[in-house]
């Protein structure tokens, strides 16, 4: 759906994007990750035609991105902003109309979303009278009120309490299920783990990695396993021999332990199972993949070490 090829952008002497290419497929939730100042917001602004790239092209549904396509994109910027003295409904209708809806269509969609987010009673209130969380919801509705094919959400979860975070995540999953594509820029790695299909990591204006979330975690797998068992800890350690390295353990009560270990050489999970069967009562063996947070830190640190 969205193809970005060799995008470049600099502000005076500072390079904000350096030859960034990526592609986002239809119905995907795509995570855009990176530390502060990496260039994510610049990329998002270029996608939304807010600023122009110095070089490179963007294609949307196979066509070069232009002003006309903006009606198919919904945008939630990181810095939230609404007209404070406008009424909620009036404001949402205005923003929907700017994205190409007729007044009638805008009215219908606004009513639908306000009802869905449980803020229908606030529709005639001025934005300045809303709580921060409520205003965030209005802002989120503003991004999708015109029923866009692509949603670009910059930190959509910041400022929400856990209940509303869950509400937004559920909504994103529903949008994905209905065929919408979402680009999600966030520092909330748990949400990336939970809902993103693919992700890319941008650091110092360059794209450092891009893959499915599962593959990214696999790629940074340290060969660690978690084992939960019932029995004797000494018997467990003796069973491991030299093919496995015990990284740590913890007694979780009732003669039960949780141990973290790493494979050595060519050992596989089956070797581990064979080694432990009969020595302890196995309850769980799980390959421990790094979280996206760990992947993120791993890549950034790796990059910094290369620089050093």
């Amino acid at each position: 759906m969205l193809e970005i090829n060799h995008l470049q952008k600099s502000f005076q002497r500072k390079m904000a994007l350096d030859d960034v290419s990526l592609s986002v497929g239809q119905g995907e939730i795509y995570g855009l990750l990176g530390p502060n100042g990496a260039g994510k917001t610049t990329l998002i602004r270029i996608i939304n035609q807010i600023i122009e790239a110095d070089a490179g092209i963007i294609r949307f549904n196979g066509q070069l991105m232009a002003q006309q396509q903006l009606a198919q994109i919904g945008y939630l910027p990181e810095e939230r902003g609404l007209y404070k003295n406008m009424q909620v409904e009036e404001q949402l209708i205005f923003l929907a109309q700017l994205r190409g809806l007729t007044k009638h269509e805008a009215q219908r969609n606004v009513t639908h979303w306000l009802t869905k987010f449980g803020i229908q009673d606030w529709r005639t209130k001025r934005v300045e009278s809303l709580s921060k969380g409520m205003a965030q919801k209005v802002q989120f509705i503003a991004a999708l009120v015109h029923d866009p094919q692509l949603l670009v959400l910059d930190e959509p979860l910041s400022g929400f309490d856990p209940v509303n975070v869950e509400l937004i995540l559920t909504e994103m999953k529903e949008l994905k299920a209905s065929g919408k594509t979402i680009i999600l820029s966030t520092h909330n790695m748990q949400s990336v783990d939970e809902i993103c299909d693919r992700a890319s990591l941008i650091h110092e204006a360059k794209k450092l990695a891009e893959d499915t979330v599962w593959n990214l975690r696999e790629q940074h797998n340290q060969g660690e396993y978690v084992v939960r068992f019932k029995g004797n800890m000494i018997g467990f350690v003796n069973a491991l021999w030299t093919d496995f390295e015990l990284l740590g353990h913890e007694e979780i009560g009732d003669n039960r332990f949780m141990a973290k270990l790493k494979m050595r050489g060519t050992s596989q999970m089956n070797d581990l199972i064979n080694a432990l069967v009969g020595k302890v009562e196995l309850e769980l063996i799980e390959k421990k993949l790094p979280s996206m947070q760990e992947v993120f830190i791993d890549i950034i640190r790796g990059k910094e070490e290369v620089h050093a």
């Binding site: 945008y75 910027p77 902003g81």
Partner: peptide
């Protein structure tokens, strides 16, 4: 005011 309340970024994503 539009700059300080940041609505401008939402507007610029729809209009020139």
């Amino acid at each position: 005011k539009e700059k300080s309340n940041r609505i401008v970024e939402v507007l610029l994503s729809a209009v020139k």
